[in-house]
Simulated assay, not measured.
Amino acid sequence: MRGYDDPCAIARTLGLVGERWALLVVRELVFGPKRFSDLRRGLAGISENVLSQRLRELERAELVWRRRFAPSSTSAYELTERGRGLEPVLVAMSRWGADLPLPEGTDPALGVDALVFTLRATFDAGLAGGLDVVAHLRLGDDHFRVEVRDGRFRARRTEPDDAGITIATTAPILRSLVSAGGTLAKAERAGEITITGERAAAEHLLRCFPPPR
């Protein structure tokens, strides 16, 4: 791993996660374990070799570990407790960079985990007020359990469950609704989103994410 010959804690942190793609790999694992193929899907610009190298480096740094899940013995990568400690760092970076312009030629589409992380970072407790809700968010083949309680937003990757609300859509449509001025009624008429369960709470949830300035 890169070293800076500097005892500062920032330099030591960058020595572990300062390589290109490293923090984005961490971002992809914030909401739960992912297989290698799923990590590649979420990081469209990374090669297999680079992803393998970053995962090895993060494992050596004890930020990520690989485990097998029964009964299929599927191998997946997961953040360690120390790795999860990077979440607030990523939240701060997401908030700081939200207003930066996109580099010319950059595809503006966000990956699924990048979008959910953006929701995590832009969640406004003031807009949530006393909202207390559990929702199942389905974005194509990706499922998340989203909870808003006591002014805090939590999300984790999960299988479909018994949440009181289900919001089924795609990442681009959800992004347009929460940050690009799209309207829920128009998306529903076009068949781009389906809401079941407590509709008023679902609408309130979608209003908790102010767009960038």
Rank of each mutant, 00 (worst) to 15 (best):
W96H: 15
H136V: 01
R149D: 11
L131F: 01
E188D: 01
R189A: 11
D162E: 14
T183M: 10
E104F: 09
V112P: 00
G182V: 05
F153C: 13
R138H: 07
A109F: 03
G151V: 05
L110R: 12
R152Q: 14
D162R: 08
G105E: 07
A202Q: 00
V146I: 14
A180V: 07
V91E: 13
V116M: 06
T183I: 00
P172N: 06
R156W: 06
A98G: 01
D107F: 09
H136I: 00
P108E: 02
P108G: 08
S176C: 11
R138I: 04
S176G: 08
L137R: 04
L86R: 02
D124C: 15
A125S: 13
S176E: 10
G130R: 09
A202H: 02
L115I: 08
P210F: 08
A163R: 03
L184N: 05
I167C: 04
S179W: 11
V112M: 05
L137Q: 02
I167G: 05
V91C: 08
A114C: 04
G181K: 12
D161I: 01
A109S: 11
P172G: 10
V133G: 01
L100I: 08
R95P: 09
T169H: 06
P210W: 06
L139T: 03
T106Y: 09
D113N: 08
F209R: 12
R207W: 00
V112R: 05
R138P: 02
R199E: 05
E147A: 14
T118C: 07
D107E: 10
F209W: 06
V91Q: 07
L205S: 02
A202I: 01
R120S: 12
A201K: 14
D141L: 06
S176W: 14
L205H: 00
G105T: 11
L139R: 04
R152I: 10
P172I: 06
C208E: 04
D162T: 12
G164D: 08
F123C: 15
G197C: 03
R120Y: 04
V112I: 08
G151C: 10
L100Y: 07
A201M: 07
E188T: 02
D99Y: 03
P103F: 06
V148R: 15
F153K: 13
L206N: 01
M93H: 09
E198C: 04
E104Q: 12
G111A: 11
D132F: 10
P103Y: 11
I167W: 04
D150F: 07
V89K: 00
L102S: 13
T166I: 01
